[in-house]
Design a binder for these strands. Structure first.
Lengths: 324, 324
DNA sequence: ATGAAAGCGCTAACAC
DNA sequence: GTGTTAGCGCTTTCAT
């Protein structure tokens, strides 16, 4: 059907240069005259040359796949739909580079596992989803330049992240602007840096509004959202708005509230965070993030060994629907 | 941290055999004495030997990643959460084999693209998600033995699939058993084989019950579910149950109905298909499928070049909740 | 049944 | 700036 695919040798021959020169031009490393550059490039596109990822990996000792690493208490975190979105987006950009993707769970209690993974031949780059500080601390220097985080970063790990604090601040400010005076918040998993920052932002807005803070711990699940809503209405019956870090929890809260006969948004407004697919269906006010763009940005940086600077920020955009 | 990883040469040396023998034993191809087998195996596990996927790929001309291929009208199908689940599960089992995953959109109007993808070095195996007959027809024989379908298969493509017909039959039978006499169905994308089979099953049950068939076309989206529900209640106001192929559509229908003041399940029962994460949250009666198991089964077959027989069936299990 | 040796396609020293 | 050459780690004839 396609016949034999052409190799670097074919390109070199067609361009009338040596293998080494062709390699230098195509891989972008090492010197080459303009004339050579031109001819090699021409020959390559003429022959539809596509470098053989495995051969390159073998020669460079650089892996042939990019690892998406998710920290969590159990391997169950891998089934999170958010992880699915990241993996999917990563796989898409990786495919264009002849690179595959693999998925790994990083046990919260054993961040050193990341070091082992990084040393592994076969792994060309790493994308960390929502890393914790301890995980960031054990990133071996050998992966420097081919690792990125979706979430907080570090000196060695460039971060691609949503402006979490601003996102939360926006939502809470919207609630306050709508006249809500008793805004409760259901937080996220306590060990996640993003939870911290969101809680801080909540405090700032609520304090500035002269409104009492009402925090209830969450874990991003719908079940916890339901329980948390009940807890909130029991402890503070006059609550008039609930903000949950994570749409699933928000939707759980919404359900629990309605089931308890509370009018949403009449009596209590409900807002979430993330704009999952289901949020639109339930008319949930929330804040949306370009997850696919973020993942693609991180993947591109890793694949191209590009240093994008310590922090690439993505916007968190308020989506107004019926619930708040 | 881990020092240098051991190579086949290390194993061969430790076992006191030649490189070739070690290779034969470890790859399972070619003859080898029992004595040799034992010693090589021992040495390998002693040294924690892991074959270098890239080197193997280079030598065998077999790719280093497994492609997940999704057919659809636009590349947008790649963002479907179902695809995410499959990719995630595949990536997990692939990682254990030192193989990566890549994701590809197969345009509905150009199934031949599959042939090109299959010829591509770099691609070791293919998993087709919900392939159509035309796509199956252009599967080149060169990929025989390293391809599998999640959905219908063909002579050359082993199928790993849910018992779609039984699943639909179960749901509809449950509706009928609950006293519903006017059961409407919102179908799925018409070009998908699974839609066909589900519709046929619906007809069988409904006919057997002496109940009129009421079909409305769907496309798996929530928006279409909402519109379809309105359409149904307009055309057949006495409808007392709606079954949607796909939970998103079912949830859309549920919302539309409730918003129109219809009591669910009092006046109209609603049931879906797939048991997506939000189904539980909305108390939707549906039918659940072991997607991760299915994907893992398909991936394993492809990676191990194992022929599992033409069809591996997975159960479709009714999940009774409040909506029906 | 086993070993020696020739690659797979590419990169990286190293000489020129 | 360019070419020659030696591997990267594995599989696979081909002798033995």
């Amino acid at each position: 059907m396609v016949g034999k695919q052409s190799t670097l040798a074919d390109v070199a021959r067609a361009a009338g240069v040596s293998l080494a020169t062709a390699s230098r031009v195509l891989s972008g490393r090492g010197p080459a005259s303009n004339a050579a550059r031109q001819r090699v490039a021409a020959a390559a596109s003429e022959l539809h040359y596509v470098p053989h990822a495995a051969a390159r990996a073998l020669a460079t000792r650089i892996g042939t796949r990019i690892a998406v690493v998710v920290g969590g208490q159990t391997a169950h975190v891998l089934n999170d739909p958010y992880v699915g979105r990241v993996v999917t987006a990563t796989a898409e950009v990786a495919a264009a580079r002849e690179v595959g993707v693999s998925l790994h769970w990083l046990p919260l209690h054993d961040p050193a596992e990341l070091g082992r993974l990084a040393e592994h031949r076969g792994i060309g780059g790493i994308i960390l989803i929502n890393p914790t500080k301890p995980a960031l601390d054990v990133v071996p220097r050998s992966v420097r330049g081919r690792i990125a985080a979706i979430g907080i970063g570090s000196r060695d790990v460039p971060s691609f992240d949503v402006d979490n604090a601003a996102g939360t601040a926006n939502v809470v400010a919207h609630l306050v602007a709508g006249g809500r005076r008793k805004v409760a918040m259901i937080t996220g998993a306590p060990w996640l840096p993003c939870t911290e920052r969101a809680v801080a932002a909540y405090h700032r807005v609520v304090d500035a509004a002269g409104t009492p803070p009402r925090l209830v711990p969450g874990d991003f699940t719908a079940a916890r959202g339901e329980a948390a809503a009940v807890e909130i209405m029991t402890r503070w019956p006059d609550t008039d708005a609930v903000y949950a870090l994570g749409d699933l929890s928000a939707l759980g809260a919404l359900n629990a509230l309605r089931r308890a006969g509370v009018d949403v948004p009449g009596d209590v407004a409900v807002a979430g965070f993330d704009d999952i697919a289901f949020a639109a269906l339930s008319r949930l006010t929330t804040t949306t993030h370009p997850v696919e763009d973020i993942a693609a940005g991180a993947a591109t940086a890793v694949l191209d060994r590009r240093n994008p600077g310590p922090l690439t920020r993505y916007p968190s955009t308020l989506v107004l629907r019926e619930s708040a």
